[in-house]
Amino acid sequence: MARRLEEAGAEDAAFSTAQVTELIREVAGKRVVLRGKIGGQPAVFRLYLDRVEDCTRDWNELCRIWPKMREGDLRVCAPLGFAPEAGVMAVAEVEGTPLLQWLYGAPETERARYLEPAARWLRAYTECTETEAAAQPAGWAKRAERAAKTQAFIRLKRVEKPILKEILRLVPLLDDSQWRFAVSHGDFHPNNLIVNGNMVTGIDCGGSRPAPIYKDMARFLMHMGRRAMIPSGEVYLGVDRQGFIAFCDAFRLSAEEREITLPFFIAVEALLRAETRNLPQSRVRRARQMSEALLGDLERIGR
């Protein structure tokens, strides 16, 4: 890591002042995330290990969205330094608490506070690149089918099999639809939003290609749902009902988008993130409960 940061200093003078104080996260063989300072300013460093070109992709995406979301209550973190050959970038550290972490510590009566701001944040991120194109439900159904085959737990496979059947049933209902596409966040889950009072700041913005706008909504809702985190206490499709409504309202989804398209993507997302053997049994139990609730509502859609 020291060698990579030294190489970065040769590319971008900003890194010559870099000081690293803490290892935040290491994804073996892929990337390292560090905390420190650059030019005396608190910073987060990302070192790309296996796909150095991803550093350029993520940096370009951050620089694209930064001018549009640098002020107000809905923001992204500020870019500070970029060394593509070394595979290193630095961004300003954001004050606050990752949203999922905040949810676990908040009183139950206050947990729904950030559902609507989270939906508005995603809308602010996507609206400047939104386009329309023909729907591609069969392709997403195939992705879900492939992912379902990697599910490690028999008790989850038993409920995911009928979920896949419902996904396939919805495909013909969407074949002739128009979907909205936009450059997306790419990994929009609650811990990639940092909350601090009324301020909501997005981090790890890596999306660089247009994707259906419904995918990031489903990712956010399902990330909480499979952990049995239902901030409002109301469940629909295995996820938070008020969160579902917040995204529908923020994006002004049509009746078809609300009633079929977004539920379709929530079901797809449920299968895309297959649970692995190293998960604790409590997580598996929560995932099963989520899947059963999802299936119950899916069976009524479009009939």
Rank of each mutant, 00 (worst) to 15 (best):
L74C: 03
V91I: 13
L99I: 10
F45T: 06
W66V: 11
G39P: 06
D50I: 07
P79H: 02
T97E: 15
R46M: 14
L49S: 11
E71R: 11
E61H: 07
V44F: 03
A43F: 12
A78S: 12
D50M: 06
T56K: 06
G81E: 02
R46L: 10
C77G: 03
P98H: 09
C63Y: 07
E95Y: 09
M89W: 00
M89G: 01
R64P: 10
V94R: 01
A90V: 05
I65R: 10
V88A: 03
L99C: 03
G96K: 04
E61R: 15
G87N: 00
G72R: 01
R46E: 07
R75E: 00
W59L: 04
C55A: 14
V91C: 07
E61A: 15
V52D: 03
F82Q: 00
W59F: 08
K68N: 11
C77P: 05
G39K: 03
M89K: 14
A92G: 14
M69V: 09
R46A: 11
V91Y: 08
K68E: 15
R51D: 15
V91Q: 11
A86V: 02
V52L: 12
G81D: 02
R64G: 08
V52N: 04
E71N: 11
M69P: 04
N60I: 04
V44D: 07
D54S: 13
C63F: 05
Q41H: 13
L99W: 14
L47I: 15
F82H: 05
I65F: 13
D50V: 09
A86R: 00
P79N: 06
I65C: 02
Q41E: 15
I65T: 11
E53I: 02
L80C: 03
G39M: 04
T56H: 02
V44C: 13
C77D: 09
E71C: 01
E93F: 12
R70Y: 08
E61Y: 01
F45D: 03
R70S: 15
A92N: 06
R57V: 14
D50H: 11
R57A: 12
E71I: 00
T56V: 09
K68G: 06
V76Q: 07
V94M: 01
K68D: 14
D73I: 08
A86F: 05
T97R: 10
N60V: 07
G39C: 09
C77A: 15
L74I: 06
D58G: 06
T56W: 00
L47A: 13
C63S: 12
C55L: 05
E85V: 14
W59T: 05
M69C: 08
V94Y: 00
L47P: 04
N60R: 14
L49I: 15
R57Y: 03
G72K: 06
L47Q: 10
T56D: 13
G87E: 01
A86D: 02
C77E: 13
C77K: 00
T97K: 13
M89R: 14
A43E: 11
A83P: 01
L49K: 13
A92F: 07
N60G: 12
D54K: 12
C77V: 13
C63A: 12
W59G: 00
V94W: 01
G96N: 05
P98G: 08
W66T: 10
E71H: 12
A78T: 10
R51W: 06
L74D: 01
A43S: 15
A90L: 04
G39I: 00
A86K: 01
M69S: 06
G72I: 07
